[in-house]
């Protein structure tokens, strides 16, 4: 199961302190783990929501530092891609995994797969026994669709103002956090639906 999908910044943001990351989109799947955990049962729904927001922030921060460290280590220059060059941007993206220890911030251990595309990070938090090869493919696919359908290589703010597109995308390619074994025919059929949704 995938626990959440995040889009967040991995570059310095003027309003934030160094090392912080701005979460632009976050989607948690399934029931909140706090509902079922013994210690957190007394939490009110508001507190649970706050806890979830903080969880997303913790993951984003960890990934942000992983991305910068990995970029520093590789010493490669970032290639600027413009709208229309989504494939190039994806090809140039760095990727990796962050191990999230139990309790930090999820109650069980998780693996956060990330893809750093220029100033943005796309992160999939999976249960560690998940098929990471499949998760990696799914993350790439999702990222490509996000870049294309929300014109994310441009200067617009569609990631904030068209987030329903990401929801619709996730409901097909990662329904309720379920990674799917989709061959190209199944994928095409879902992508057709996605395209129809985006056209509205």
């Amino acid at each position: 199961m995938v626990r959440c999908f995040l889009i967040h910044t991995v570059c310095p943001v003027s309003a934030l302190s160094a090392g912080e990351s701005r979460v632009l989109y976050s989607r948690f799947f399934g029931p909140d783990e706090g509902v079922l955990a013994e210690q957190q049962r007394e939490l009110s729904p508001e507190e649970r929501r706050l806890l979830q927001v903080e969880k997303a922030a913790v993951v984003a921060r960890q990934v942000r530092s992983a991305v910068s460290l990995s970029r520093e280590a590789s010493g490669r220059q970032l290639v600027e891609a413009v709208p229309g060059e989504e494939a190039l941007a994806l090809q140039e993206a760095n990727s990796g995994v962050v191990r999230l220890r139990a309790g930090d911030p999820f109650s069980d251990e998780m693996s956060a797969l990330w893809l750093g595309v220029q100033s943005l990070g796309f992160t999939l938090v999976c249960e560690p026994h998940e098929n990471l090869l499949l998760a990696e493919g799914t993350l790439r696919n999702l990222t490509r669709h996000c870049l294309e359908h929300l014109h994310m290589l441009g200067q617009g703010s569609e990631v904030l103002l068209r987030s329903n597109r990401i929801d619709a995308l996730l409901s097909r390619l990662l329904p309720h956090g379920q990674l799917l074994f989709l061959n190209h025919r199944f994928a095409q059929s879902l992508e057709k639906e996605v395209a129809a949704y985006m056209a509205k």
């Binding site: 309003a15 220029q118 200067q155 617009g156 703010s157 990631v159 904030l160 103002l161």
Partner: peptide, 12 residues
Amino acid sequence: MYSHGSESLIKQ
């Protein structure tokens, strides 16, 4: 990618 526009939207 991430622009000032987005940042000011969040602020608003």
